[in-house]
């Protein structure tokens, strides 16, 4: 009887092992978790004029066409609410040679301004509910059409450097601060000076495809480079943004008729009052280059 008990115990111990090696699996054990979704703060690489810390992915190319209509919307039907023009045009190309790094070129018809720039996202972190990103951007701009005139020293070159601080709160609100250093803000001066300014921007995402956005460039008062009698004011923009799988469409009202960063950053002769609002738009398209 003792032997039988031993045999039974031994058999009951061994049989389940043999059976488990041959039974169909009844549940699946994952070998890895799901892929981590990248953090997003601002959806776009820029608001209207200010950069965000968002960058393209390696191998992506961004094409941009933007307009700022020079007549105020308040001119009414006589000027088709500003759409008759003339218009300040900006064409841009940007390319990402690596993830988180972009290089670009912008060309505006205002003084035939040509700019070369680069941007990098250097930090991303924070909590899932309040992600935080830091980026840096710099650019060198040149007016290829010399303005000339009394007092002009011929130095048409400008340069800027920006620190980009972005965060998102409450899931739908993205906020940014962009401390900016600008060399030669007033190209009419005989001696180039330096200026510091602060840009702030925000976007409230109504859905994943639509947002309202705004930006404020606190640049400080200085005389306009074309008209000494005009004191420049802060450039402010409010707009609506629609995005699809590769496009951004941004429609905006603004008190600035300038387009390239080094031209917008010093300020605008117009106040941000409804009477001085101008219509503008940015359209960007992201394409993949190569495989």
């Amino acid at each position: 009887m003792k032997a039988l008990s031993l045999a039974l115990a031994t058999t009951l111990t061994l049989v389940p092992l043999a059976a488990s090696a041959q039974e169909p699996p009844v549940r699946w054990q994952r070998r890895s978790g799901p892929t981590e979704v990248p953090v997003t703060v601002f959806h776009s690489t820029q608001s209207a004029n200010l950069p965000t810390a968002e960058t393209l992915r390696k191998g992506e190319l961004l094409f941009e066409i933007s307009h700022r209509f020079q007549p105020a919307m308040s001119q009414g039907s006589h000027a088709l609410w500003g759409l008759d023009g003339p218009v300040t045009n900006r064409l841009g190309l940007a390319y990402a040679p690596a993830d988180r790094i972009m290089v670009g070129v912008l060309r505006s018809n205002l003084d035939d301004n040509l700019e070369f720039n680069a941007k990098a996202r250097v930090f991303e972190g924070g909590r899932e509910s309040t992600p935080f990103m830091v980026g840096v951007m710099g650019g060198v701009a040149l007016n290829t059409q010399t303005i000339g005139g009394p007092g002009y020293n011929g130095d048409e070159t400008q340069a800027y450097a920006q620190l980009i601080l972005n965060t998102r709160v409450g899931g739908r609100l993205a906020l940014g601060a962009v401390p900016t250093f600008l060399h030669n803000p007033r190209i009419a001066d005989a001696t180039a000076k330096n200026a510091f300014m602060l840009g702030v921007n925000g976007a409230f995402y109504l859905s994943s495809m639509a947002a309202v956005f705004g930006e404020w460039l606190a640049s400080g008062a200085r005389p306009d480079y074309n008209d000494e009698s005009l004191t420049l004011k802060d450039a402010i923009t409010l707009g609506l943004q629609l995005e699809t799988g590769g496009h951004f469409f941004k429609l905006m009202v603004t008190n600035s008729t300038r387009a390239n960063p080094a031209q917008v950053l010093p300020g605008t002769p117009y106040s941000f009052t409804p009477h001085e609002w101008r219509f503008g738009f940015n359209i960007t398209r992201v394409l993949k280059i190569g495989g």
Binding site: W28, P34, E60, E243, V286
Partner: peptide, 22 residues
């Protein structure tokens, strides 16, 4: 069989985000 959907790559990051989120 199962496929990790967040890993799908359409070649454009913006489109990937729409695909994942929307």
């Amino acid at each position: 069989f199962e496929v990790d959907l967040a890993s799908l790559d359409t070649g454009i990051g913006l489109r990937d985000r729409h695909m994942r989120d929307d």
